[in-house]
């Protein structure tokens, strides 16, 4: 609730105009139309998690067999891994936009300098870019959910509910990624980001239940963000809802609010000197 308050307050303080946020999104739609290379990038972003799902979920799953969860439920391994891959693709879809592309526009092509000379406010720029990142991520997650339903890894009903959850995941990671990008010095820092991203990918209860780890590690994992995204989405696609998922949602909302706030502040402090 604190975050909802923070989000609306930040939004109101800057009098966020939907038309101006839309104008920022509109710019990206135009860029998508005029640059053919972009489609290729988009397509590759979809295949990556699908390949992981097929190789690990289905391939390794054949070796592992079924998992017995803490609550006693038995789950085929692929059903366990698939929602994690979905969360990962929501994360990386949004991050690709708000780290690499954002940094390029921020530092080199000066897209935001051009925008800031107009009535657009930093918060509107950040919100527009983030919404676009979320839309990009949702292209991946929408397609991925169709694959999951087709493979019988979730039901159409749960998939419909999981879809907006992937939006939240995209917004949360996108916002934090954007904030981090404003501090990036050069391309070498992207190696750090992708290493971090990969570490999250491996150790967020993605491939095995976190309860399998020693308790200190389990706690450590519970602090990291992707864990909360995976928990939330896995709870939905497997139909095993629990109250703790509200905590996951709150965690992601805080990421969203803090990321958006820091990113828009940094747009001003770096570009409007």
């Amino acid at each position: 609730m604190v975050t909802t308050y923070a989000v609306t307050r930040v939004a109101r303080g800057n009098r966020l105009s939907p038309a101006r946020v839309g104008a920022v999104i509109n710019r990206n739609v135009g860029a998508l139309r005029s640059g053919p290379a972009y489609w290729l990038v988009l397509a590759s972003g979809f295949f990556e998690p699908v390949l992981y799902l097929l190789s690990i979920g289905v391939g390794v799953g054949a070796l592992v067999g079924d998992l017995t969860l803490q609550n006693g439920e038995v789950l085929p391994y692929a059903n366990f891994v698939a929602p994690a891959m979905l969360a990962v693709s929501a994360m990386s879809g949004a991050l690709a936009e708000t780290t690499f592309n954002f940094f390029f526009k921020f530092k080199y092509v000066k897209t935001y300098d051009a925008m800031l000379a107009t009535p657009l406010r930093p918060m509107e720029i950040a919100a527009g870019e983030l919404t676009w990142a979320m839309i990009r991520g949702s292209l991946y997650t929408g397609a991925f959910l169709i694959v999951m339903v087709a493979l019988g890894l979730t039901t159409p009903g749960w998939a419909l509910l999981a879809f907006p959850a992937t939006w939240l995941v995209g917004l949360a990671f996108g916002a934090v990624g954007m904030a981090v990008s404003t501090y990036i010095r050069g391309w070498q820092d992207f190696d750090l980001i992708s290493t971090g991203q990969f570490a999250l990918f491996l150790f967020s209860g993605t491939f095995s239940p976190v309860q399998d780890y020693p308790v200190p590690v389990e706690i450590l994992i519970a602090i990291t963000p992707l864990y909360h995204a995976v928990e939330l989405i896995r709870g939905i696609t497997t139909g095993m809802l629990s109250w703790s998922m509200l905590g996951n949602v709150a965690y992601l909302l805080v990421m969203l609010a803090v990321g958006l706030y820091v990113a828009s502040r940094r747009l001003t402090s770096v570009l409007c000197r």
Binding site: S17, A19, R20, G22, A23, V24, N26, R27, G30, A31, S34, G35, V109, K110, T111, D113, A114, M115, T118, P119, L120
Partner: peptide, 21 residues
Amino acid sequence: DNLDPDLTVFENLTTYARYFG
């Protein structure tokens, strides 16, 4: 110049127009 390299000449103007509502 901070023109938008991802857009055409025409779109550079129409996109900018949108920023002004």
